[in-house]
Amino acid sequence: MKLYTNKFYYGDYGESKHGAADISSPQTNKQEWPLWEIFIRSRQGLDHKHVGSLHAVDAAMAIENARDVYTRRMEGISIWAVESKHIHASNPDDAANLYEPSNDKVYRHPTFYNLPDAIKHM
């Protein structure tokens, strides 16, 4: 696991060694616009699904931008925008504690029950 100093990918040509470092840009933003998570309903009858995020100053702008960024080809008919800071997520490190206990509750699945073949429509 030692081979990682300088990698080359599409559009990725390593660090400053080859850089045009003479051009500098002052950081002019007072503050970054807030981040929003975008959810899109692709058609009536389906759930809104997370598609990505974007920056906007308020909800109206977030929805307008989401329309341009995420629905250029009829991908959706309804947009939800939620400011990212309001999303609370479970911790992946807790996954074992949280979800594994359902593994031993096989009786929650219909296949757990052995019934005679003669019985129909069940």
């Binding site: 599409y10 559009g11 850089g19 500098s24 840009s25 970054e32």
Partner: peptide, 17 residues
């Protein structure tokens, strides 16, 4: 952050194709 990425592009630290 987005601003940090822009900054890396503008200062030549980050490359593009």
């Amino acid at each position: 952050s987005r601003d940090e990425m822009y900054n890396q592009l503008h200062t030549g630290k980050a490359k593009y194709s």
